[in-house]
Write a protein that binds this DNA or RNA. Structure first.
Lengths: 333, 333
DNA sequence: CTGAAAGCGCTAACAT
DNA sequence: ATGTTAGCGCTTTCAG
């Protein structure tokens, strides 16, 4: 059996309450007593039982993170931001993968809530009614990280993907392109269908250009699928001379498809992508990209969650972080 | 206040013990009673408190994962393997980043143990005496994933990096190369210094070749540092014609360094790397590589841990998983 | 098959 | 400044 607070109390000839005070840094302890207790703790190798503490205090200092897939660099980077701020505020994180399944998301909410997490950070492609119901009935704060909610106004941290896509498209238009494609990730993802796609269309319409649906291609956001997508795009009689992609991995799929046709980037095709990893920087030519501050998205989400858990006043619960365009080699000068 | 087991008991006109039995799937409950209780649970929206359960049963169904950096694809992939098997056996995971700091690793052991995790999976570059002491005094099973321990024989899951490096080097020798470099990650990492480096040297010596220390380059395992390393290697009077790298990211650094000198791969330099991500496959030329089964490393580690936590008999606690060489384009046919 | 009761290890009033 | 005590919500004997 492990050492308990009782063992320490007996050893130090004080009550368990005093030991508890010492452990919790309560100032109402005479320095001499404190030292005596600390010595015993050291000597016995006492380690407070966080589970008992959690039951008694109703705070577990643990938060839950529900993410589609922690192995994807997008979420891995975001999660690292969460983890670092969590550490800073002395929280542990329980992380679970939903694989974007609504039923799994609901299960995970129940699971994490059952574990009495003090708060939750949720990421998903889109929010289903079932999940919204879970969030409504949860008794702890929830923050959406990089995840959109159009119905309600839950605390969230995002960048303005619509505006970013608009700017990317506009830049391509200004570069003289008439045929600009948008190779997207799945449209089941709000960020793609509702943000990037809409920004793309807004820029085209503003320039008085036609929307050609054959230039809007949905992929599953993987390299292989993107590579295939150029098989379609490249065979168009009037093929695109520029493309915006929803991620750097997709851009590289296009890029290799283009290269295997002996076309060149940026001479024959200009590419601007959303950057989610180191990929954009290490391929040649390097990819001009909207840099998405994934780490910060996670860090700010967690910071926001700490405020909510502390019941602090938060002026703005829907945070929008800045992004920027990094000019590299996939666009002509 | 949340619904407790008492509320359900009162509502169902049974004792809390019976509710507990129902919740825990105990067979000693009359079907009619079970149904009645289940109905009340449903109606009241009762959700068992895992913290109270953990305190009473001394099992939290949570395991700890200590990892250098969850944002690195290497560990992200490995962690996903852990997470999936954890889910399968109904465990949650608390994951923390050590950033390879020994003192942080020790803190995290204490932290996780304090949270009463039922087991731990540990990953690190090398095991320090302080950490070894933590592991010795821990009262729960610990599995090392992709991490070496030379002193003791803790449960672990690995691949044979030494043999893999030997085979890679031998293949390069058989291809006729006389100057073969090894661009490594940090030698503070046992896997590099003690395994890959040793396998590399073994192959050279077996072929009667000299060990030229200038061909062994230590990097911090990043793209940028690897790129710089070619500045050194490429300027050698008798420069290498082949190179083994400890990761695909490092290989790409070399590759771009080579390309910026207008040399070609594989004509002027052959490369074989250890593959830790999608990178090896999406760059051109694609990289011939030792495929490291990261996901499986994690999954098998977790499976092993479940057996240990169940006190099952385990015949072999030091598991070695197979790897294979994927021939692609960075080596001549 | 069901209930009563004793903890699990700690926090947080409430006393002193 | 320190001690006493009543829970926190559940599991787990032990009875019956």
């Amino acid at each position: 059996m492990a050492i308990t607070i009782y063992d320490v109390a007996r050893e130090a000839n004080v009550s368990m309450a005093t030991v508890s005070r010492v452990v919790n840094g309560n100032q109402n302890v005479k320095p001499a007593t404190r030292k005596k207790v600390l010595d015993c703790i050291e000597r016995l190798g006492y380690r407070p039982n966080a589970v008992a503490r959690g039951l008694a205090s109703k705070r577990t200092t643990t938060i839950g993170v529900i993410v589609p897939d922690m192995s994807k660099s997008y979420y891995a980077e975001l999660s690292r931001g969460i983890a670092d701020v969590a550490t800073m505020y002395e929280y542990n994180i329980i992380i679970s993968n939903s694989d974007k399944s609504t039923s799994r998301e609901v299960e995970l909410f129940e699971d994490h809530l059952g574990k009495q997490v003090d708060g939750l950070i949720f990421m998903s492609d889109s929010i289903s009614p079932e999940v919204r119901k879970e969030m409504k009935t949860a008794n702890v704060p929830i923050v959406l990280a990089g995840t959109l909610d159009f119905e309600t106004n839950l605390p969230s941290v995002n960048i303005d993907h619509e505006q970013a896509a608009y700017e990317v498209t506009k830049k391509l238009i200004d570069n003289g392109h008439k045929r600009i494609a948008f190779v997207s990730g799945p449209f089941t993802r709000d960020i793609n269908r509702v943000c990037k796609r809409v920004g793309y269309i807004r820029a085209l319409e503003e320039a008085g250009m036609m929307i050609d649906e054959s230039l809007i291609v949905e992929t599953d956001n993987t390299y292989d699928d993107a590579y295939e997508s150029w098989n379609v795009l490249g065979k168009l009689s009037d093929r695109p001379t520029a493309v915006m992609t929803s991620s750097d991995e997709v851009a590289i799929g296009i890029m290799n498809g283009v290269r295997d046709e002996n076309l060149r980037i940026p001479e024959d095709l200009e590419i601007i992508c959303f950057q989610h990893s180191i990929l954009a920087r290490i391929v040649r030519p390097q990819l001009t990209a909207i840099v998405v501050p994934l780490y910060d998205l996670g860090a700010v989400s967690m910071r926001l969650l700490t405020k909510l858990m502390n019941k602090e006043e938060v002026e703005e619960t829907e945070v929008v972080l800045p992004y920027y365009l990094e000019e590299r080699q996939s666009v002509k000068k």
